[in-house]
Computed example of a mutant assay.
Amino acid sequence: MGPPLAPGAPVKIRLDLRPVLAAFQKDGFYTNFKGEKIYKQDLKHVLVAGDVAPLSWGFDNLVNKPELELHDPNSDGIYETTLVMNAPEAAKTTAQEWCQILKTDDFPQYSSDYQLADALYNLALGEARRAVEPDSTFRTGKEWAGVWTRDISYSIILAQATLQPRLAMKSLLRKVSPQGRIIQETGTGGAYPCSTDRLIWAVAAWEVYKVTGDEAWLRKVCPIVQQSVADDVQNAYNPGTGLVRGESSFLDWREQTYPRWMQPADIYQSENLSTNAVHCQANVVLAAMARQLGHPEVAAAHERLANQIRHGVNQYRWLEKVGYYGYYGQYRYGLRVR
């Protein structure tokens, strides 16, 4: 092992993709060392990953780090990029103290006899305010720009509906398609319908209504939720089990949930506990919205759907021997062989 790189050292990475490009030209695909086929139309980016800054193992987020993308400036099949290693700002440091910088006195305040609890609460308020983009929508995370349906919906349910309801409204509406459906923007196999937990949006929208009491908001979001559920009934609801198909919700990194042999079609067929909990509550919420807006027949239909999912979860996901719902074996897949 050689000496460590000097601070700010440039490192050029070059990758010879000529065999891959030649296979694309000849066959339309390239077969990798595992026997998997990579088709020409699926090669969108060439990126480098790793565990030393500025590299990252967050594969889903690599496209948001332009310095990690390799390019072929000479069109010779050699892709390259130059990284700056050991940059001073990349060094891991721990702050010795925290001082409040952002104004948060318009948020609900908390005080107690415990100074640490007060400081942690005030720190959380500061982080909530810091999580706002210049366009007045919520940022998904430090390294995840923009609004993501799943992430922002859970944040709104947990706190942001109470803290910043108007920003919550704007962020939720950012995740509505021109056709008036909730957008499922991330997930296995190109997202929807392999991923179907977009309906957590409905629960977040209802949380905003509970905070604001804004009837205009309710009239705006109710048709969006209703149309999205109608699509899911056609594409993801299994009348045989009463459950909803699609991959897991908040434990959504597929490599941590599903075995490697499962393909997107298999993951679509799985009936996941967390995703079914989302759909059950979304139908409960939609029924409440419809009743509030004077549509009892719509409310009754979605109460039936919620009960259908609830019955399916109790029948297929309750583990009698251990006395809890099967989260560690969190999805139902395949047929029982007698």
Results as ranks from 00 to 15, higher is better:
Arg291Cys: 10
Phe24Leu: 03
Leu293Asn: 06
Arg317Asp: 13
Val322Pro: 09
Asn74Ala: 15
Ser56Pro: 08
Phe59Ala: 11
Trp261Glu: 15
Gln330Cys: 14
Leu218Trp: 04
Ala124Arg: 07
Ala119Arg: 14
Ala159Trp: 05
Gly240Val: 02
Leu273Asp: 08
Gln184Gly: 02
Thr104Tyr: 03
Ala161Ser: 07
Ile157Asp: 02
Ile101Gly: 13
Gln226Lys: 13
Gln115Thr: 14
Tyr192Lys: 07
Lys142Cys: 13
Asn64Trp: 15
Leu17Lys: 02
Lys40Pro: 12
Asn122Thr: 10
Tyr324Ser: 08
Arg150Leu: 11
Ser136His: 10
Leu55Val: 06
Arg254Asn: 11
Gln269Ile: 09
Pro223Arg: 06
Tyr121Gly: 09
Glu297His: 07
Met289Asp: 08
Asn74Met: 11
Lys26Met: 10
Ile13Asn: 03
Gly8Asn: 04
Ala128Phe: 08
Thr82Gln: 10
Arg129Glu: 11
Asp106Asn: 14
Gly190Asn: 07
Gly246Val: 05
Pro66Thr: 06
Val285Ala: 11
Tyr192Met: 03
Tyr154Asp: 00
Leu167Met: 09
Arg166Trp: 11
Leu47Asp: 08
Arg310Gln: 14
Glu80Ile: 07
Arg254Ala: 14
Pro193Ala: 03
Ala236Tyr: 08
Val52Pro: 02
Phe138His: 01
Tyr79Cys: 06
Arg336Gln: 13
Ile182Lys: 01
Gln179Thr: 09
Gln292Trp: 07
Val285Ser: 06
Lys37Thr: 05
Val313Gln: 07
Trp201Cys: 00
Pro178Tyr: 00
Arg150Cys: 07
Tyr30Pro: 08
Thr257Pro: 12
Met1Asn: 12
Gly180Thr: 03
Pro165Tyr: 01
Leu83Gln: 04
Val244Phe: 08
Glu271Trp: 08
Leu62His: 03
Lys170Tyr: 04
Thr140Asp: 06
Pro264Cys: 05
Pro108Trp: 00
Gly187Met: 01
Glu143Thr: 13
